[in-house]
């Protein structure tokens, strides 16, 4: 396990540095002079030179990158070009909304996805399986913005079960349900596919036949022996979902008017607030890497066989 952990970490660190490099290059490539942006259009040459000097824009690129690295290391993601507030501060302020959204979405996703996957697996080839498959293909194929608008129209406008938009400070659960459902149903569709195929594979294994031969009840076989083993690949999918929620939240929070990270990103995009966009993209990538790291370690810890396989494969 130690060897695995070290190997896995040694693959992560270069990726982290590479991501910072990409984010840095993208910011560097953005058209326009950052000193000009700060000084305003009517600044004279002397002011521009002074600001460039202060921001370190005159230094060679590698030096700017290293000072950028140390800045990030100290938790400074830069300041918003529009409000002047530190990006990290705004992100922390808005994070709870997106986390809450993601948590509810994930609950929907896990419950619906695993349920549909199991139903599909045990009724394999029959009509119930077909129904689940149709739902799952549809769920994967419908863009989030469309399902969001449809849910908004049907459940908020027509049935008036939910607030149409507008988030109030009382911070209840209601404004989150529809957007979370929109996000969750998409990942549930993915999950159902994985659970189905993984469950079918497990149910065809020898130990399931043994359990059946021992005369265990079908429910016990399904849940105690089948599901536990079938759920291992699901961990990976759930980890990947976390990252997809950040993408999804940009659209869903815009449609449902929630003040989370996605909305923050969208506002920054519309205002061309580059430091904010860069900060959010960077954070998204960091979260993805950390989540994947945890998932892989967890995976290897649960199943030593997979660990050995991965070690054999990573021994390049």
């Amino acid at each position: 396990m130690l060897e695995f952990t070290i190997r896995r970490l040694s693959a992560t660190i270069p990726v982290l540095i590479g991501i910072l490099l990409i984010a840095f290059i993208v910011l560097y490539m953005i058209p326009g002079d950052p000193a000009q942006t700060i000084a305003g259009p009517r600044a004279d040459a002397a002011t521009l030179a002074r600001i460039s000097e202060e921001m370190g824009l005159n230094q060679p690129l590698y030096q700017r990158f290293s000072s950028y690295l140390s800045r990030i290391y100290h938790g400074n993601l830069g300041d918003s070009a529009v409000s002047g507030k530190p990006v990290l501060e705004s992100v922390i302020e808005k994070l709870p909304y997106t986390l809450k959204l993601a948590a509810i979405a994930m609950t929907f996703s896990i419950v619906l996805g695993i349920l549909a996957g199991i139903i599909s697996a045990i009724t394999q080839g029959r009509w119930l399986d077909r129904v689940c498959t149709v739902f799952s293909v549809t769920g994967i194929s419908i863009p989030v913005f469309l399902s969001g608008l449809v849910f908004l129209y049907v459940f908020a406008v027509k049935f008036r079960w939910f607030p149409t938009s507008g988030f109030r400070a009382d911070n209840t659960l209601m404004p989150f349900i529809l957007p979370a459902f929109t996000l969750g149903i998409r990942s549930a569709a993915f999950l159902a596919r994985i659970v189905r195929s993984s469950m079918i594979e497990v149910l065809n294994q020898d130990f399931i036949r043994t359990a059946r031969a021992k005369g265990l009840s079908p429910a016990r076989i399904l849940f105690k022996h089948g599901l536990v083993n079938a759920l291992i690949p699901v961990i990976t999918v759930i980890g990947l979902d976390l990252s997809s929620y950040l993408n999804g939240s940009v659209i869903v929070e815009t449609i449902f008017d929630l003040p989370g990270i996605g909305r923050f990103a969208m506002d920054a995009i519309l205002q061309r607030d580059y430091p904010v966009i860069q900060g959010i993209v960077l954070l998204g990538a960091l979260v993805f890497i950390l989540v994947n790291l945890v998932v892989d370690l967890l995976y290897a810890w649960i199943n030593p066989k997979i660990r050995d396989e991965m070690l054999g494969k990573t021994a390049r």
Binding site: I19, I22, L246, N247, V250, I251, I277, V281, A285, F288
Partner: peptide, 9 residues
Amino acid sequence: MFLAFPSLL
């Protein structure tokens, strides 16, 4: 690295 970035963003 490229897989790590949130694709839409």
